[in-house]
Amino acid sequence: MNSTDKKYKELYKAHYPKVMRLCLGYVAGDEAIAKDLAQDIFIKIWENLDNFRNDSSISTWIYRISVNTCLSRLRTGKKRSRTIAIADVPEILEEHSDADREKQLVQLYKCIQKLSETNRAIILLVLEGLPQSEISEIIGLKHDAVRTRIHRIKSQLTKCVSHE
């Protein structure tokens, strides 16, 4: 096994769960589509791993590929009039016994789907626990702009969830 293969395996193992959660957020919990997206993302990572210049952290680079791939898929999906079912929001909901919590999570996913592409990317990265500085690097906005957007997005989602 050469060093590129080894590095790829380590990246895959370390980042697959995060990439998968991000993809699930973009497709309202549709696991089959999320798995396809994650596979596409890791193919792109493999194809471009030797070109990674260390201008940013490897995780920032992976998130950038992930966001771009998810947005690209959503754009082409919309052009084909493809709708994504929200009925079966993530299987993790089945693990929770609290019906109210389940209902809120379903509403949250529905509300996230209503956000603009950039705002959706920002909030999904926030939910993933990334620092605002890294989010600003991934999205390509200034840190202050990201901080302001996060505040507005949270407010918008709070209103949306309570009115759904």
Rank of each mutant, 00 (worst) to 15 (best):
K13R: 14
R53F: 02
D30M: 06
V126P: 09
I86K: 05
V161Y: 05
M20D: 05
F42E: 09
K159R: 15
I84E: 02
S81A: 00
S136D: 12
I41N: 00
A32M: 08
L37R: 03
I92C: 04
Y12C: 10
R73E: 12
R64C: 03
A99D: 08
D40Q: 10
L71P: 00
G29N: 04
V19I: 10
S81D: 14
K9A: 14
R64Y: 08
A38M: 10
P131W: 01
L11C: 07
I33T: 10
K78S: 11
K7P: 02
Y63V: 01
F42D: 00
E128L: 13
E102H: 02
R101T: 11
W46S: 13
L108E: 13
A87G: 11
Q104F: 07
I122T: 08
N51Y: 11
C70S: 08
T76I: 10
A99Y: 00
K114G: 01
I138R: 04
I135C: 04
S3Y: 07
K18V: 08
H163W: 02
H163K: 15
L11V: 10
A121R: 00
A85S: 12
E94L: 11
E31S: 10
H96F: 15
A38C: 11
K18C: 03
D55T: 10
A121H: 03
R53W: 07
M20W: 12
K18A: 08
K78V: 11
E95C: 00
M1T: 09
L24T: 07
H15N: 12
G129V: 05
V67R: 03
R75P: 06
K79W: 01
S162M: 12
R147C: 09
L93R: 09
W61I: 01
L22G: 00
T76W: 00
K35T: 15
L124S: 02
A34M: 06
L11P: 09
S133K: 15
T118V: 15
Y16I: 06
G129E: 05
E102K: 15
Y63C: 01
V19H: 02
L22W: 00
K18Q: 01
S56N: 10
H96E: 15
A32N: 12
P90Q: 02
E94W: 02
K110A: 08
K35V: 06
Q113R: 09
Y8H: 04
Q132G: 07
E128T: 01
L115A: 01
L124P: 07
Q107E: 11
L125R: 03
G129I: 05
S116L: 11
E164F: 03
K78A: 14
V146L: 12
K9H: 12
H15C: 05
N68G: 06
K44H: 01
C111S: 10
Y12P: 14
H96S: 15
S133N: 12
Q113G: 04
T148E: 14
N54H: 15
G29H: 02
K103Y: 08
I123V: 13
D50H: 11
V19K: 00
S97A: 11
S72Q: 13
Y109S: 11
C70M: 07
N51V: 08
T60Y: 06
R64K: 15
D144E: 15
I122A: 03
K79Y: 02
T158G: 10
A121Q: 03
D50Q: 14
L49I: 14
L105G: 00
